[in-house]
Simulated scan of single mutants.
Amino acid sequence: MLDHEEIIRLYGPWHHRTPSDAAELCNEYSGLWWIAGGWAIEAFTGKQRPHSDLDVSIPRSDVALLRQHVMSRLEVWAANKGTLWPLIGEVDEPLPSTFGNLWLRASGAEPWEYDVILMDATDSVWTYKRDTRIHRLTEDILWTRDSINYLWPEIQLLHKAPGLRPKDQADFESCLPLLESADRRWLRSAMEVAHPEHPWLNEL
């Protein structure tokens, strides 16, 4: 996995964006969207942390809907493991399943604006991309503050677990004392299925 400095060296800088910026971008957007990543952790804990970008997230099935919404303002690129592919065809052109993110920017001369994470979610059910045995009602993966949806921390920590970067460990330690017992049990159960040798299990 490329670190943020290497991503900047290869693909250019990222503009600093906040959840409020995402809310402005998604004004009148008809699809479901939410804030994931470090900003979701910060919103839950109330503790400020560094941010390299803003992770917006949508269901994978809504790629065409988002492209239609932003096409007059931002370019959309599909991203996966160091590969970038400009989405310049028809908005309903199928996106290969190997691409897990969309990167948005105004033009090639401008910094990247938003990293949009594509999640396997329908109107009713979210499924963990690394292990389809783990799922949850879509309405139960999100919470709302100031009209902005955020990913619940137990879902975000499950996504962060495989990386185990220093910032992931810090986010885990920040969230753990604040998790409800039921949410802690859910995270432990999910990790026992998907990541059974993970060191976090000893603390959960």
Rank of each mutant, 00 (worst) to 15 (best):
E6I: 12
L187W: 04
R136P: 03
H198L: 01
I58G: 14
D168Y: 05
L95D: 12
Y11I: 10
A106C: 09
N101D: 14
G12M: 13
A161E: 00
K160A: 00
E28M: 09
Y128T: 03
W33I: 13
A79I: 01
R9S: 14
G46D: 08
G163M: 05
H198Y: 02
R17M: 03
S189A: 09
I155W: 05
Q156R: 15
E90G: 02
S189H: 11
T18A: 05
A22S: 05
T98V: 15
H16K: 07
L102E: 08
L2E: 14
D21W: 03
T138K: 13
V193N: 01
K167I: 08
D92Q: 11
V63Y: 12
H135A: 08
L66F: 14
P50C: 09
E5Q: 15
W126T: 06
Y11F: 11
K81C: 05
P50F: 01
L142N: 12
M191E: 00
L158E: 12
S97F: 07
E6C: 11
L104E: 11
Q169S: 07
T144C: 14
G163P: 12
F99M: 03
W112H: 00
K160W: 04
I88R: 05
V56Q: 10
R17F: 07
G37T: 12
Q169Y: 04
F172D: 01
A121F: 01
S107C: 04
P19I: 01
S174A: 04
T45Y: 13
L178D: 12
Y128F: 06
Y128V: 13
E180Q: 13
